[in-house]
Amino acid sequence: MLALVKSEWRKLLFVRANWGLLIAATFISALSVAVAPFILDAGEAGALLGLGIDQTAAIDATYANGISGYIFAIILGIMMMAGEFRHGTAVATFLTAPRRGIVLTAKLAVAAIGGLLMMLISTGISLIAGYVVLLGFEDAAQPSENLFVNTMIAAAISGAVLGVIGVAIGTLIRNQMLAIVGALVYLFVVDPLLLALWPDTGQFLPSGLITAMLSIDISAPELGFDTTDYLPALTATLVLLGYGAVFAFIAIATSLRRDID
């Protein structure tokens, strides 16, 4: 088992595209944190949300953008699995370790660690970027007391779970491009739509859960957005981990049955 983890770890480190994902995750999330204060200060978006930069909720919302890189954690997981079928390396992988359940367990573990590290790094750098940018706003309020800790915990757990979900998607949809596009469409279109239209149900979906883990309260009914009714952070964490467990089970169960091309 340890040997397989070492092998998966090498795949994670050796493949340059994975480093590209880390850079992209860091860039996107740091940019969205760094730009948010300027938008809030300009008035329009802030007015829509009913927030100004001198309010704690606005600062919390700014820093919350630091977890925007989670989409790249799911892509990392997808590439770790579907990439094996794309390049044909699945053949070598399952020839070396024909007990597929153990291979998948090792891959899920490394995807969880990879997703976690990616989110810790990208979110950590984004929070620092936000802090530096906000130094330039004299009237900026202070963030909530536990915001940084909550954000880093949410980043770590969401990164690990989304990495696992990515591997599961990669076992189900072996076409890497299709799997990535499907995940992007879901996270950017379907999930926010469900969250806006049916918030009672939507709050149990990944985006709602990750937001809930931040424990921030932002109410903007004009935008169909109200985090005050979201699940408590701990419950959201447990539900998200539950998603991870279900997807991990699906990954192991399906990979055991199908032939490898």
Binding site: A3, L4, K6, S7, R10, K11, F14, V15, R16, A17, H87, G88, T89, V91, A92, T93, L95, T96, A97
Partner: peptide, 21 residues
């Protein structure tokens, strides 16, 4: 097929070697 095209021959084999100890 069976090896990652963007990795060197050596790195490809190191991945296989690691999984078999």
């Amino acid at each position: 097929r069976g090896f990652h095209p963007s990795l060197s021959g050596r790195k490809n084999l190191q991945i296989v070697a690691a999984s078999a100890g």
